[in-house]
Design a protein around this nucleic acid. Structure first.
Length: 279
DNA sequence: CTCCAGGCTTTAG
DNA sequence: CTAAAGCATGGA
């Protein structure tokens, strides 16, 4: 058992885990969160002035929670945007999670045209079906399946797990996600990597952007979905109308907001998404 | 019953 | 190039 302490000033487990970037979390009847990433699990326990993360690999979760990044600075930079004040106030303590790339690709393909409850349900079903059973100090759980483990599932298997029309996407894309391909992706520029991701079955601009942001730490990416489009239309319409280069369409909204927020675009997106979806 | 969910693919204009 | 239908499933 290893422990990490995270000050509450720039970390809130509820907002970080439930803001929509991540799906494999749960909460026990004492109010403690569990987060599963890859083959590892962490328990997050409230303490004075912060939270204690208990796990078997502290370094893994220090990286997972981006503890090497300066969120005070990010907060100050984003606070200069007045329309972010309420979202930041509401979702205080959000951190962008460094998720496993393979896992992020699978999870965000599942997320398309779907609701978060069912996304979580499907992912757990996939993990239980194909993932390894792991034991830790808190009991046992299922790791996210490796590529080799998912290769054993057919389109029919995925369909039986409730994936709907996404079953065909996974059956086609999993064989393409070799370690060699994933490692080459990580070395590409954001633009090139986005193109390579969109070339895969079941991945369009929005899913690719989520993968870039949450699985490849490309903080300048601003994924735009139906919710963000609404945010844009309500919060940014007046601003955008003053800029003739801004046109309609989610891709152009994403391009524009990436420039507006720079390296903090993804964090700004999470604040806005969480705020809008909760109100 | 219809409508929608962190969209993508295919087809038509 | 843009626009729109079709897609599986389950909950509201």
């Amino acid at each position: 058992m290893q422990k990490i302490f995270i000050n509450e000033e720039h970390f809130n487990p509820t907002h970080t885990l439930e803001c929509g970037q991540f799906f494999r979390f749960s909460i026990d009847n004492e109010g403690n969160y569990f987060a599963i990433s890859g083959s590892k699990r962490a328990k997050i326990i409230p303490k004075n002035n912060g939270y204690e993360v208990q796990c078997d690999n502290a370094n893994y979760f220090k990286n997972f929670f981006e503890l090497d990044k300066n969120y005070q600075q990010k907060k100050e930079e984003l606070a200069s945007f007045k329309f972010l004040q309420k979202p930041i106030e509401f979702g205080y303590g959000i951190r962008i999670l460094r998720q496993d790339l393979f896992e992020a690709i699978i999870c965000f393909i599942i997320s398309q045209n779907n609701n978060i409850k069912r996304i979580q349900k499907i992912i757990e079903a996939v993990c239980k079906r194909a993932g390894s059973k792991v034991k830790d100090d808190f009991g046992s759980f299922y790791a996210f399946p490796t590529q080799n483990q998912l290769l054993k599932l057919t389109e029919t298997d995925y369909a039986s797990l409730g994936l709907g029309y996404r079953a065909a996407y996974l059956a086609k894309v999993v064989p393409l996600l070799t370690d060699e391909f994933l490692n080459s992706l990580k070395r590409m520029s954001t633009e090139v990597a986005r193109g390579a991701l969109i070339a895969l079955p079941g991945i369009g601009r929005k899913v690719a952007d989520c993968i870039l942001l949450f699985g490849m730490q490309r903080g300048e990416v601003f994924p735009v979905d139906v919710w963000c489009e609404r945010v844009y239309l309500s919060f940014f319409k007046n601003h955008a109308q003053k800029n003739p280069r801004i046109a309609k369409g989610r891709e152009k909204i994403s391009d524009y907001l990436s420039k507006v927020f720079g390296t903090n675009a993804g964090l700004a997106q999470q604040y806005l998404f969480y705020y809008m979806r909760s109100n």
